[in-house]
Computed example of a mutant assay.
Amino acid sequence: MEINWVVIGVVILLIVVLVVLTIRKNLKEKKKLENLLNNDFKKAEKVDVDAEDSANEK
Rank of each mutant, 00 (worst) to 15 (best):
M1A: 06
M1K: 10
E2F: 13
E2W: 10
I3F: 09
I3E: 13
N4D: 12
N4M: 03
W5Y: 12
W5T: 12
W5A: 11
V6C: 13
V6Q: 14
V6D: 15
V7F: 11
V7T: 12
I8Q: 15
G9N: 15
G9L: 15
G9S: 15
L13R: 02
L13N: 01
L13I: 11
L13G: 14
L14W: 04
L14T: 02
I15R: 04
I15L: 14
V16R: 06
V17S: 12
V17M: 13
V17C: 13
L18R: 14
V19Q: 01
V19T: 01
L21I: 11
T22Q: 10
R24S: 05
R24I: 10
K28M: 04
K28I: 10
E29A: 09
K30C: 04
K31S: 06
L33T: 04
L33V: 03
L33A: 03
L33N: 07
L33F: 05
E34V: 06
E34K: 15
N35P: 03
L36Q: 07
L36D: 02
L36W: 03
L37S: 04
L37K: 07
N38K: 08
N38S: 09
N38E: 14
N38Q: 13
N39P: 06
N39T: 07
N39E: 02
N39Y: 00
D40K: 01
F41H: 07
F41W: 03
F41Q: 05
F41E: 04
F41M: 03
K43A: 05
E45V: 11
K46T: 15
K46M: 14
V47P: 01
V47F: 05
V47A: 07
V47N: 01
D48E: 12
D48I: 08
V49S: 02
V49T: 04
V49G: 00
D50Y: 01
D50A: 08
A51L: 13
A51K: 13
S54Q: 11
S54W: 12
E57L: 08
E57A: 08
E57H: 08
K58T: 02
K58Y: 12
K58E: 05
K58Q: 10
